[in-house]
Amino acid sequence: MLHTVNKSPFERNNLQSCLRLAQKGSAVLLIEDGVYGALSGTAVSGEIADRMDDISFYVLGPDIAARGLGESPLIEGVQVVDYGGFVDLVAEHEVTNAWL
């Protein structure tokens, strides 16, 4: 399953709930304000880093760039994709679940 998260983890609990209910082997794509969760060195970085062995993490590059974070270091292991990569991720996983 591919999970998408579009909320900042500093404002809402979408990322936390997604990580709580995401199965081992699933993928999480951070988009829109969700991309703030992909940055390293924040108060919530550990939540993703702790699941890196279980879950594949991706972040939408255009949303990172738009927010002035293009040069900011990401949590190690988080892969950057563009919209084409987003489409590929949806195609590769049988179900997509958007944590709105």
């Binding site: 579009n6 988009i31 919209y83 489409v87 195609a91």
Partner: peptide, 19 residues
């Protein structure tokens, strides 16, 4: 919200990939 923009970019990218 950005939702409609994101959906639009996604649709565009899907079509570009032949989906």
């Amino acid at each position: 919200h950005q939702a409609s923009d994101s959906a639009y970019r996604f649709a565009e990218a899907a079509l570009a990939k032949g989906h």
